[in-house]
Write a protein that binds this DNA or RNA. Structure first.
Lengths: 310, 310
DNA sequence: CTGAAAGCGCTTACAG
DNA sequence: CTGAAAGCGCTTACAG
């Protein structure tokens, strides 16, 4: 065994008695060439026998971009959405022989540029950017933006169906650009459901600050009977605050989460939430990044995971 | 504006009136060359003025590997450990002008090979592999393995200090290769603490199955008064099972988690757990991957996050 | 002290 | 139907 020299196009060419160009043509199924079936077979067979795998770096230098797509994701956005999104993105990319690589942490134009300089990926996708850029993904058949609108509406409707009209949205303390969009959609949904447009307030991370914020808001707005979380994390903190304040859930105040992160089962009461399967969204992003046809993708509707908090 | 052609070494050479080689030498501080200070300054200045950034792909083709390190990580290992580990890895790599890219999901030799073929990373690190490979990181000054042993011991000791001697380890349903190692260390710790070596049992994912498993184990082993979770996830499920079974925590049974994932605050009672800061471990991995000196890294000791479950 | 040249492994006009 | 050649942008012996 031992580490042997990698087998290159040269080796395949030599072994099959044709030029490097010919090998490249048959291996890439170049439509501009017409190469005899016999030659094609022979070349493909030798490539297989030798275990030839194209050197991605050389190819990237020649073609200008590598067969890689980079996803950048900020901390705190993990949930069922991100997991299923990444699964779909990864699967679709793999189907087209691209590899998905993820960058965690906070991202600036500089860090993105660094990634570009270092590996020249085919694309770098910012998790959630399609929301923010306001691109009309609906027009591409993905129903993405409509998706978020629908999901926000679903969350609100569940509350209304359980008799709540005084509703407030609980926001994370970190400024999420998504928050504004969510609030907007929730507003739309409220109008079409015929209830007052929900107010919002911020839920701090620290436990006692959290309880204070919830208590303060509730005394300020006594008509509120239900709290809609921006995320499960936020909703979980609200649940904790309500527990610390001695308020009963859902009898005194109802709580609903968003983007079922898996931890809503563990609390008492367990957290009712919205579960979004973003597999199709991930596939859509992949096709967009690869300039492929985006038709035929049918994201399933989001669903309410009914537990005990509303 | 518009997308302009990237500036290459050629441009810098032309603009500063020297050869490409000279530019490369000064920009890389080649110790084998002796270039006049005047020339060096001029070249560096023009490179800056032109905004020259080396093309990573070309460099990688020439050098054999790119300035990238890939971390592969399986689902279900997220926690404070992994977060701080990744932070440290990322920071140390960045300090040496490498970029960290992560691959999620399940990994096989084939998928790893694919990444190798596509971007020729400097190294691919499997999250947790150093545990499994049994490499003697202690000898390198990182205290890693000793770290895990110490952390397992810390978890157990906390239980013993609270009067428990009948202890069992709760394991995840998925086979984690780490489980065997953890069990081994817990065994060592038990012996040095003078208690019986803890038994173990598996906690299924599904809620009722989970309660059944816990109930079954507890009736089989009535001497057990404390359950040590392999992870916070497992411990959280144990807490839920105990709640469903009507057992009081910690009075009837005490529970402790491992690797503070942040969700132990939300339960009632809140979960006591072990918090490991793996920033230094991440830095160590980075230096190992880059063949750098690993001295001077002092991982802080792990600590017990005391909440209410023990 | 500095430059001309080769070469990393590929793809793709271009010529036969 | 197939091959010789150029070139992607870099680094590094080698020669002056």
């Amino acid at each position: 065994m031992g580490t042997s020299r990698r087998v290159t196009l040269n080796d395949v060419a030599a072994a099959s008695g044709v030029s490097r160009a010919t090998v490249s043509f048959v291996l890439n199924d170049d439509p501009h060439q017409t190469i005899s079936a016999a030659t094609r077979d022979r070349v493909k067979q030798t490539a297989r026998d030798l275990g030839y795998v194209p050197h991605g770096v050389a190819r990237a230098l020649r073609e200008g971009t590598s067969r890689v797509v980079v996803l950048t994701i900020e901390a705190g956005l993990e949930g069922h959405y991100s997991r299923s999104y990444i699964d779909g993105l990864d699967a679709e990319l793999a189907a087209h022989e691209y590899v998905l690589l993820v960058r965690h942490g906070h991202h600036t134009p500089q860090t993105t540029q660094q990634v570009l300089d270092v590996i020249a990926p085919r694309a770098v996708i910012r998790f959630g950017e399609t929301y923010l850029a306001g691109r009309e993904l609906d027009d591409l058949g993905g129903g993405w933006r409509d998706g978020l609108a629908a999901h926000s509406a679903l969350q609100l409707r569940h509350l209304v169906e359980h008799g709540h009209t005084g509703i407030v949205v609980a926001l994370p303390d970190s400024e999420s650009p998504l928050a504004a969009t969510r609030l907007k959609f929730t507003g739309h949904a409220a109008r079409s459901l015929g209830i007052r447009v929900p107010d919002s307030f911020v839920v701090p991370l620290e436990r006692s600050a959290c309880a204070e914020a919830v208590a303060a808001y509730l005394t300020r707005a006594p008509q509120v009977t239900a709290i809609a979380g921006f995320s499960d994390d936020v909703a979980l903190r609200v649940l904790m605050a309500l527990h610390d304040l001695g308020r009963r859930v859902p009898d005194d105040v109802a709580v609903i989460g968003f983007d079922d992160n898996g931890y809503g089962v563990y609390t008492t009461p367990a957290l009712t939430t919205v579960n979004v399967d973003a597999e199709a969204h991930g596939r859509l992003s992949a096709r967009l990044a690869l300039d492929l046809d985006t038709g035929g993708l049918r994201p399933p509707p989001a669903r309410i995971v009914v537990r005990q908090s509303v």
